[in-house]
């Protein structure tokens, strides 16, 4: 393989080219952490002083310190951990079920052309409709209980997962299918070794979309059908004008959502490393 090969053996390192910074300076991880902390600190300080300085009534925006004071109070009353944990449990279990249903369903429908043709308009309709219209029906069917909350998460998340996975299957490179066929791949091998692997980034995206939609399902369920959970505490505190508690739990919900969507984003990114710069 002498000199000839040497000419072709291109430099290895620069191929993982640094993404063009496009004029923006890139921070190191450490710098980013520092910036984020400063950013949050400024935000907290502003929240603390603005209600006083602008004389905003407490019912609209309590001071941050009053909101934070709710946490020890809720823990003391025994309503904090129990309700937060219930939300987490219901969300995680609901999402696991939604993914377990949605991903195989998307692969199945997307993989069988006739199913795809027939079901696609309905799936899009379900995907496009806000689930809130399903609420009365779901309550009628299963009653006001935990099952209704799981169902709300599933109903919110599954259509997004299914539709995105189906669309993903359509993006499989025809040239890859042809290559596999040229080696005599049968339908099953074609599906497991070509179609599914090339759909994996879309599965990641579908799961991510499903997770953020599932959060809506969780919250709606807790607000209207629950006697436990973060949403329930918010609803209850709202009824008795405990605005600080509403904010305190809203912040919990925001934190929970950020962590979950961040997690989903991380998974999505890991699943699509090979797509090089196309998606990332």
């Amino acid at each position: 393989m002498s000199a000839a090969a040497g000419a072709v053996r291109a430099p290895k390192a620069p191929l993982r080219a640094p993404k063009a910074p496009r004029g923006r300076k890139r921070f190191t991880t450490k710098q980013r952490v520092v910036v984020t902390i400063i950013n949050l600190a400024i935000f907290c300080v502003l929240w603390q002083v603005i209600p006083t300085v602008l004389d905003i009534p407490r019912i609209f925006l309590p001071k941050l310190s009053e909101i934070f004071a709710q946490y020890p109070k809720m823990i003391e009353e025994g309503v904090f951990f129990s309700n937060v944990l219930v939300s987490i449990r219901i969300y995680v279990v609901g999402m696991v079920m939604a993914i377990a249903v949605g991903v195989p369903l998307g692969l199945l429908i997307g993989g069988i052309r006739i199913l795809d043709k027939v079901l696609l308009p309905y799936l899009w309709a379900v995907y496009a409709t806000p689930l809130i219209v399903m609420m009365p029906l779901i309550l009628l069917w299963v009653g006001i209980n935990e099952r209704a909350r799981y169902l709300l998460i599933i109903v919110s998340a599954v259509p997004a997962i299914v539709v995105i996975v189906m669309e993903g299957i359509k993006t499989v490179e025809p040239s890859l299918l042809r290559a596999a066929r040229s080696f005599g791949a049968d339908r099953r091998v074609l599906f497991t070794k070509v179609v599914i692997p090339s759909t994996i980034p879309f599965i990641g995206t579908g799961v991510k979309m499903g997770m953020s939609r599932g959060l809506i399902g969780l919250f709606v369920g807790e607000l209207f059908t629950a006697a436990t959970g973060i949403g329930y505490v918010i609803a209850l505190a709202g009824k008795v004008f405990n605005i600080s508690r509403v904010y305190a739990m809203l912040l919990m919900f925001v934190a929970f959502s950020v962590v979950m969507v961040g997690l989903a984003q991380y998974v999505e990114r890991r699943l699509s490393v090979w797509r090089s710069s196309a998606v990332l």
Partner: peptide
């Protein structure tokens, strides 16, 4: 052997 290589990118 294909013109467009048709390698599995993953």
């Amino acid at each position: 052997v294909f013109q467009d290589y048709a390698l599995m990118p993953w």
